[in-house]
Amino acid sequence: MAFVVPKDTYNGKVFEVEIGTGDKAVKIGGENTLPFLTFEGAVPNMPVIAHEVQDVAPEDWPETVQAAYKGVSGDPVTWAKHCQDNLGAQAIALRLYSTHPDRQDTSPEAAAKTVSDVLAAISVPLIILGSNHAEKDAQVLRAACEAAKGRNCLIGKAQEANYKTIVAAAMAAGHKLIAMSDLDVNLAKQLNILITQMGYEKEKIVTDPMSSALGYGIEYTYSVMERIRSAALMQNDGTMAPPMLNDIGMYVWKVKETMASESDLPDWGALEERAIGWESTTAVGLIMAGSNLLIMRHPKAIETAKKVIAELA
């Protein structure tokens, strides 16, 4: 009687999503096993990191991360080009922050112009983000989708309150879509189903489970991501098979650890090192949970996260 080795394989597979065009296009997802378990299954693509760029000078970012973009962050085109050309960005995430009604309330048309200008200056893939105001995002992202037609961007974030408009716009202009729900695995699944029911292919969705910073609820994000991934792989649940995105910069760079000065809290050590470490550690934690795409801010934190990915690959 021959001994047959019992094998733990999964029925499901994470969808592979391509963003961008030409030779700078990137693919995320595609694995049929848990993060980095390359000995057990196929992991065709390692996590990708996008540099966050805003359509307005990042005056509300903490000094440590503002300083990293001194001289370029006044203009989104210059800033994006700097990330691509000087920092080796794999992708750019353009946040149309000024469109928020509580900020400059920039019009959808002006935002679309910014998108066109940035796209004209870069060849790496572009992620286009609204200001996280459900109603305004619906208008802004619709205009942005049209302006970015043909560039296979990743658009977001579609949420329960505004997904219909954004899905329709992404579908019409041929973009990929970020579906975000509020740290709840059942709502994440429900949103994916609703989006699919509009005729948008689930193979083009990227799930944002909602991120959180180290020390500020990262374990909730981590366990939601684990549950999403296990539904995809072990239960072969196609509605849970999109790759996952973590938009971490905005969460990390508002916590005390990335802002408190050494004179206030001498026990916490050097601010710059501490703040950068906070972002890279948050990133690495979520990469372990199965993140396929991260949006980050500080170049040094990105560098560290990339190193970890390369070592695990």
């Binding site: 059942n186 699944k189 539904a231 239960q235 649940d237």
Partner: peptide
């Protein structure tokens, strides 16, 4: 299977 309101669909 993971629950979602539209699981029947």
């Amino acid at each position: 299977t993971l629950y979602a309101h539209s699981y029947l669909d």
